[in-house]
Nucleic acid binder design. Sequence first.
DNA 1: AAAACGGGGAC
DNA 2: GTCCCAGTTTT
Length: 347
Amino acid sequence: MNFSAELIAWYTDNKRDLPWRNTTDAYIIWLSEIILQQTRVEQGMPYFYRFAERYPTVTAFAAAHEDDILKLWQGLGYYSRGRNMLKTAQLVQQQYNGVFPVSYHQLIKLKGIGEYTAAAISSFSANEARAVVDGNVYRVLARYFGIDEPINSPKGKKTFQKIADDVLDNARPALHNQAIMEFGAMLCKPKNPACGICPVRMDCIAFKTNATTCLPVKLKTVKIRKRYFNYMLISDGEKILMNKRNEGDIWANMYDLPLVETPELMDIVELLQLPQMKNLGSNIALKDNSAIIKHVLTHQQLYIRFLILKDFPKELQENWFYADIENLKNLALPKPIFIFIKYFFNF
DNA sequence: AAAACGGGGAC
DNA sequence: GTCCCAGTTTT
């Protein structure tokens, strides 16, 4: 058996029963693939069920409002995925009369669909011979063929895509793609791969040279920025002052609280002297100085503090509005905001 | 070519 | 703490 056949044989015996594997509906496959981008299967699963139930067709999805999509997406992260999905659903409804495209060339043009996702949807729903290259595939190929080129450099991406194309079983691309990804996720894991039970270990360069822990190679780039968010919670017990976030920053188009961002961590007394704080109202009465919460994102560390103020400000800024406490459950809130509001109002 | 974009789980 | 997850878009 060749490499692909070995993987498929392993897959046939060891695959998980995942809901999106029981359909060729391109819309359902698309739903699952976007949700699973940079997301573990276990984390994405409940979201997949919720979306598939709420929006059974792309036509239903296209009719949704962005606020509803973001709310259902709440907690999953990378929210541009949800916003792009709505744009794509609307385009599919209009341009394709609600029939989700299945060819790679059509798919690759859609918002939120890149090379991986176009290959995944076209192969899974129409058996088009396109090789997927995701994090699992990079790892499996790097180890098996002993490739030490960085997987996150443009050159490396091309190298791995070519190898993936070469090993693809053109007669059964869908099965091959599922198999190699499942193999990477379950057996050829990042840490502690199960080489002892691996069916291809005798042909695996990394196994033979004891290099599994060194592969794949990845360039580290992350520069982490620290930011200091001072949120104002102002409520009369019935209404609460909220803010809709702009695009061009984290949590685009989601809802948080009036925010004063400072370049560094400030003493609470100094903070209250800032002009932005004074604009919030003449009689700022601090009822509580809560702890500073550290919230970690991929490129940012947020140090978040919530100040509970007494009175509503006289003038509202551009994106501020009053929300009924009851209505908060309908607003898409970033994780730390959601946690705090839930705690504060005892939801 | 590099940076931005969330949140969580495994070690 | 570090790494990475069924990646894509923007700069």
